[in-house]
């Protein structure tokens, strides 16, 4: 009888927790979407931002966001994947260098992102003279996402069955060939996940981005131009919410961000399941 009651209590707590999570998520989504969706139009998405007139849009922010994502990932992914490969396939487990790298990635992961912004601003923007630019921003964000990429990739590599390695080395193949033909393909879903998690992170950051890439609302013509990402834009908009129109713009931008993030999540699932099938 007591067991019964305990079970029921536990069950209702679990259900309560799960229900609460869903409720909050649904509530927040509904709040943003119901306020924003009606203001998202083709025009809003495709026209330039102006502070005067009615047809202000977010096109340049979308472009800046895409630049930022692509550039940060192309800097961080190769470095992160190579590091993870070094840690799992080359380094002796427990060696001094491995410990140092682990310590670095763990510490990096725990640092508040604004500190990356501060560092990026002094180092990339000023010292290297890259100015407030997409490049400065991407370099800063690349450091910021490196721990996630290394960790997630490492986990994916560790999960590759040891028997694949034995089989490959047993046939006299080299380490590079084994990595290329067997290990990387098997770890691919994990690596894709790493990249997509980082994409979400890049899209979501504001402080380290505007401290390094600035807030210029024009479409950047090169990576050395400043640019304003969607999240930075939303941050900026929320700083000065006076008119109804400004509120509407903020909600509409938030809506676009949410749709973007949901789309990325969906894409992750899709790609991961593709890879799972491809790997039989």
């Amino acid at each position: 009888m007591r067991r019964r009651i305990e079970d029921n209590v536990a069950l209702s707590l679990i259900w309560g927790g799960a229900g609460m999570t869903i409720l909050f998520l649904a509530w927040m989504l509904w709040h943003i979407l119901s306020n924003g969706l009606s203001h998202v139009s083709w025009e809003f998405v495709s026209s330039a931002y102006t502070t005067i007139g009615e047809t202000s849009g977010i096109f340049s922010m979308i472009v800046s966001t895409i630049y930022m994502v692509v550039l940060s990932i192309s800097i961080a992914a190769p470095i992160g994947i190579m590091t993870a490969l070094y840690l799992t396939e080359y380094a002796k487990p427990g060696s001094q260098l491995v410990k140092i790298i682990r310590f670095c990635t763990e510490s990096l992961a725990g640092i508040p992102s604004i500190i990356y912004g501060l560092f990026g601003m002094t180092f990339f923007v000023v010292t290297l003279g890259l100015g407030f630019s997409i490049l400065s921003g991407a370099l800063t964000l690349a450091i910021l996402i490196l721990p996630v990429i290394i960790r997630t990739t490492e986990e994916a590599l560790i999960a590759v069955p040891q028997s694949y390695r034995e089989a490959s080395y047993g046939l006299g193949s080299s380490r590079i060939y084994t990595i290329w033909r067997v290990i990387l393909p098997s770890a691919m879903p994990g690596i894709v996940t790493a990249v997509i998690l980082s994409t979400g992170r890049i899209i979501g950051e504001s402080a380290p981005v505007f401290l390094t890439a600035g807030m210029v609302t024009r479409i950047p013509e090169s990576v050395l131009d400043s640019g304003r990402t969607l999240t930075v834009h939303l941050y900026k908009l929320t700083q000065e919410l006076f008119t109804v129109n400004e509120w509407n713009q903020a909600y509409a931008t938030a809506t676009v961000l949410i749709i973007l993030v949901l789309a990325i999540n969906l894409l992750t699932k899709l790609i991961a399941s593709r890879f799972n099938k491809a790997a039989y």
């Binding site: 069955p161 028997s163 694949y164 034995e166 089989a167 490959s168 080395y169 047993g170 046939l171 006299g172 193949s173 080299s174 033909r181 067997v182 393909p185 098997s186 790997a279 039989y280």
Partner: peptide, 19 residues
Amino acid sequence: VAALRMKVGMVFQKANPFP
């Protein structure tokens, strides 16, 4: 070692084909 393993092949306890 690679040349050795090409000369001395190995079959494991549990079949381990590649994916």
